[in-house]
């Protein structure tokens, strides 16, 4: 399953709930304000880093760039994709679940 998260983890609990209910082997794509969760060195970085062995993490590059974070270091292991990569991720996983 591919999970998408579009909320900042500093404002809402979408990322936390997604990580709580995401199965081992699933993928999480951070988009829109969700991309703030992909940055390293924040108060919530550990939540993703702790699941890196279980879950594949991706972040939408255009949303990172738009927010002035293009040069900011990401949590190690988080892969950057563009919209084409987003489409590929949806195609590769049988179900997509958007944590709105």
């Amino acid at each position: 399953m591919l999970h998408t998260v579009n909320k900042s983890p500093f404002e809402r609990n979408n990322l936390q709930s997604c990580l709580r209910l995401a199965q081992k082997g699933s993928a999480v794509l951070l988009i829109e304000d969700g991309v703030y969760g992909a940055l390293s060195g924040t108060a919530v970085s550990g939540e993703i880093a702790d699941r890196m062995d279980d879950i594949s993490f991706y972040v939408l590059g255009p949303d990172i760039a738009a927010r002035g974070l293009g040069e900011s270091p990401l949590i190690e292991g988080v892969q950057v994709v563009d919209y084409g990569g987003f489409v590929d991720l949806v195609a590769e996983h049988e179900v997509t679940n958007a944590w709105l």
Partner: peptide
């Protein structure tokens, strides 16, 4: 949570709101 994770993984379409 564990059980819900399993149930969720068996679905074809998931609509969260």
């Amino acid at each position: 949570t564990e059980e819900l994770r399993e149930i969720m993984a068996q679905q074809d379409v998931v609509l969260s709101c």
